[in-house]
């Protein structure tokens, strides 16, 4: 500040050679991501985002903008897509009717297949596969429920659920991934 200048952090320029021009079509071709390319980047989504109000780290327009631009690796390997609270306020307010939250869910699906997902969601999936419920039953709550005259969470259909996750390939994605991690 010796010369009295304002300190401004400068970003690295985005180079077209680092971009994947087909990324936006990859998303737009999915069931949930179909309206992506209608976005004209007005920023109404970021303006109403309850997450973006408490942190600078997450703004929906940035995620959508990077996706349309083709910043594939940065979007999929980065943390931003996992910080959406899925409240759908942005979708409601979008003047172009872009399914912003659903685009983010689609990005998450691709990121997961490429090995990126927060531990909390993997744990949730394991709980579902192992007990039949994302919020798994505990012995203390079983006891409390009995006192309150309530039945235990059913687990009769657990085998059905396990057959389904094997048929969709989800089981291997969850547990196969873990084995790979252990090897490295």
């Amino acid at each position: 500040m010796s010369k009295g200048e304002i300190e401004v952090p400068i970003k690295e320029p985005i180079r077209s050679k680092d971009l994947d021009p087909n990324f936006k079509y990859e998303i737009a071709d999915t069931s949930l991501g179909k309206n992506l390319n209608a976005c004209f980047k007005c920023g109404a989504c970021s303006g109403g985002c309850p997450v973006g109000i408490v942190t600078e780290v997450y703004k929906p327009r940035e995620v959508i903008g990077k996706t349309i631009l083709g910043m594939r690796e940065e979007v999929l390997a980065g943390d931003q897509i996992w910080l959406c609270a899925t409240c759908y306020t942005c979708e409601d307010r979008c003047p172009q009717k872009v399914n912003i939250t659903d685009v983010i869910l689609t990005l998450r699906n691709i990121a997961f297949r490429e090995g990126h997902a927060p531990k909390a969601l993997i744990e949730q999936a394991k709980s579902m596969i192992e007990t039949g419920w994302v919020q798994h039953p505990t012995a203390s709550m079983d006891k409390r429920r009995e006192e309150l005259g309530l039945k235990r969470l059913p687990k009769k259909a657990l085998e059905d659920l396990q057959t389904i996750v094997k048929a969709t390939g989800f089981y291997d994605l969850i547990y196969g991934k873990e084995e790979k991690e252990e090897k490295t």
């Binding site: 998450r108 997961f112 969601l121």
Partner: peptide, 14 residues
Amino acid sequence: WTCCAPVGILSLDY
């Protein structure tokens, strides 16, 4: 009944 496979599961696999 089983889990409904909510948004946390949808986030991983549609």
